[in-house]
Design a protein around this nucleic acid. Structure first.
Length: 585
DNA sequence: TTAGGGTTAG
């Protein structure tokens, strides 16, 4: 039973509910004090709620109001916890939650848990998240769909994907938001196949989806190069009229660009009614990774004319395009422009692009100078990039400097030793080669396993080097032998294994031949089971090795097939025996 | 008089 309020108190509550500025609230508060109404819970809670939650509120003021409450009820705690959970200091939300549990007679409810879990998600407070899960069960709130969704998000943000999955799987009642939370959790954790599998489960359970679902799924399609699934989702987006949604449009552009289809990315871009910085960036980055620097610059200019402010990712796309197209002068111009004109700080990735750009152009001293001018960014990736350039330009002296730094940072990998070994080899330095071989052996250093994906229909087939796990493995190897015979007849000369590129695919077995590298298996599979006019689209987690690059060029000619390979850094369009990277990658 | 959601880079 609520307490009967005086007409004066009721009037104040009505005014408070319509309050829209902090200044006005302070005036109302003064009026409340003058009339001695500050201890009426309904008024105190309303004041607190406004200060803690409203966009024009003030959390400090909310704390002061809270301190004056004699016995704050759950609703008051919730206001404060909610306010801090969404603020720049979410830790305060957790501290208030602790305070509530240990020194208050009020009990947390489903709202309290939702807000505190939000704070854990933002803070990456893993232990607290687990503790809250226990309390949720203890207090009998585990069947609440919103609390569970918050648990999924919080676990996922804390890297506990298995726990998030468990919470989802054990839900007796799921709604669209919980499905979407699980999809986005997988997508952001890099578990793209799991995210795409959720789509099948949703369909099987007859769950309708919305723009949020599409964005999560399209992001995963983009990461694994699942163009067919992406096209299917695009059709659904058109059918359900989600294409006016800027998030969906952006995700579609990104998906098409990452799947190697820039024409359709542009088509979506042109059809969008509203565009934001993500829209422009998706196009610019798309052109950048395809090695089309001048197109990226073109789009950047149009972006400025449209009045959209670029951000650090815009410049990443531009620099990537300049670097891959060899546009050194333009690259330097944009690198300088980002800080001088747009006040955007150079990040490690931008510096990496510059090191790569100068390195490729043979200006190794300048590349070294760039790394040294950013001592706080002493990152192995920069030294590795430089090492790669030293190999191309046969510069042992700077290569050794790069290697020393990698060793000092305890970040040297087998690929790095191989790079330096080949640099020694190219300068006929047998002693250096022997030294590197000895180091690789004695340190037992392992490489990153290489993977290649190919999408056929709505299925994604994954291969590793010498993979025999595919159900059609026998057929794939037979096809590869046939392909080999045809390309050798056309002039292809098989290499043993590539030692040329940084992070290139030695695929975890240094001594193996590159004949059964994952992309060769993916290509053989694609040739065997798709029609002659189908473009083969392959995605690889490492850089394409030189042998596979040559091989793919020959295949594109001998089989009259367009093959698009997306490797770790860029796209390669193989057609009629040539590659879009012009062998410069 | 209170809740849970999305994209680029990595």
């Amino acid at each position: 039973m609520g307490v009967e309020l005086s007409p004066k108190a009721n009037a104040i509550i009505t005014v408070l509910q319509g309050c829209n500025s902090f200044k006005r609230l302070q005036k109302i508060h003064a009026h409340v004090i003058v009339n001695g109404l500050q201890h009426i819970p309904a008024i105190a809670n309303q004041l607190l709620h406004f200060c803690a939650v409203s966009v024009s509120g003030c959390l400090l003021y909310a704390q002061l109001l809270f301190q004056h409450l004699h016995n704050p009820q759950t609703q008051a705690w919730n206001s404060l916890i909610r306010g801090f959970a969404l603020s720049t200091s979410p830790l305060q939300a957790i501290l208030y939650y602790n305070h509530m549990i240990f020194s208050s007679t009020s009990h947390p409810d489903t709202f309290t848990f939702s807000f505190t879990l939000k704070a854990c998600e933002r803070l990456k407070a893993q232990n607290k998240c687990q503790e809250l899960h226990g309390s949720v069960i203890q207090r009998g709130y585990e069947s609440d769909v919103v609390v569970r969704t918050n648990l999924i998000r919080s676990y996922a943000a804390n890297g506990l994907i298995e726990s998030a999955t468990m919470v989802f799987d054990e839900m007796t009642e799921r709604d669209l938001v919980s499905w979407n939370a699980m999809i986005s959790c997988y997508s952001q954790a890099g578990l793209h196949h799991e995210a795409l599998d959720m789509y099948t489960y949703m369909r099987n359970e007859g769950v309708e989806f919305d723009g949020f679902t599409l964005v999560g799924l399209l992001s995963s399609c983009a990461h694994v190069g699942a163009l067919n699934i992406g096209i299917h989702l695009h059709q659904i987006a058109c059918h359900k009229e989600f294409t006016r949604n800027v998030y969906v449009g952006n995700a579609l552009i990104d998906m098409y660009a990452k799947c190697g289809n820039l024409e359709d990315a542009l088509c979506v871009f042109n059809g969008m009614h509203k565009r934001d910085v993500f829209t422009w960036n998706s196009m610019i980055v798309g052109y950048g990774v395809h090695g089309l620097g001048d197109e990226a610059i073109n789009f950047f200019k149009k972006m400025l004319v449209a009045g959209v402010q670029p951000n650090s990712i815009t410049f990443l796309g531009l620099l990537c395009g300049c670097s891959h197209q060899g546009l050194l002068k333009m690259g330097v111009e944009y690198f300088n422009m980002m800080s001088s004109m747009f006040n955007i700080k150079h990040g490690i990735k931008h510096i990496g692009c510059m090191v790569d750009m100068y390195g490729r152009a043979g200006k190794l001293e300048k590349a070294l100078e760039i790394i040294r001018s950013y001592p706080s960014e002493n990152d192995p990736v920069l030294w590795r990039t430089l090492l790669g350039s030293c190999k191309i330009h046969r510069n042992v002296k700077i290569g050794e400097i790069a290697m020393q730094n990698l060793v000092q940072l305890e970040a040297s990998s087998a690929g790095d030793f191989i790079l330096l070994a080949t640099t020694y080899a190219s300068t006929k330095n047998a002693q250096g080669v022997a030294k590197m071989r000895k180091l690789i052996k004695s340190r037992g250093i392992k490489t990153i396993p290489g993977w290649s994906w190919i999408e056929v229909g709505d299925q994604i087939h994954r291969f590793i080097v010498e993979d025999k796990s595919h159900p059609d493995s026998r057929m794939i190897y037979q096809k590869l032998e046939e392909v080999m015979r045809r390309v050798i007849l056309a002039g292809y000369i098989e290499e043993n294994f590539d030692m040329s590129m940084p992070g290139s695919s030695t695929e975890g077995c240094l001594e193996a031949s590159s004949r059964y590298h994952s992309e060769k298996l993916a290509i053989a599979f694609g040739l065997a089971i798709t029609s002659e006019e189908t473009v083969l689209r392959i995605v690889k987690n490492l850089r394409v090795c030189r042998d596979c690059h040559v091989f793919t060029k020959f295949v594109s000619k001998a089989f009259s097939r367009d093959i698009i390979v997306r490797d770790r850094v860029r796209f390669h369009h193989f057609k009629d025996g040539l590659c879009s990277c012009k062998d410069y990658w």
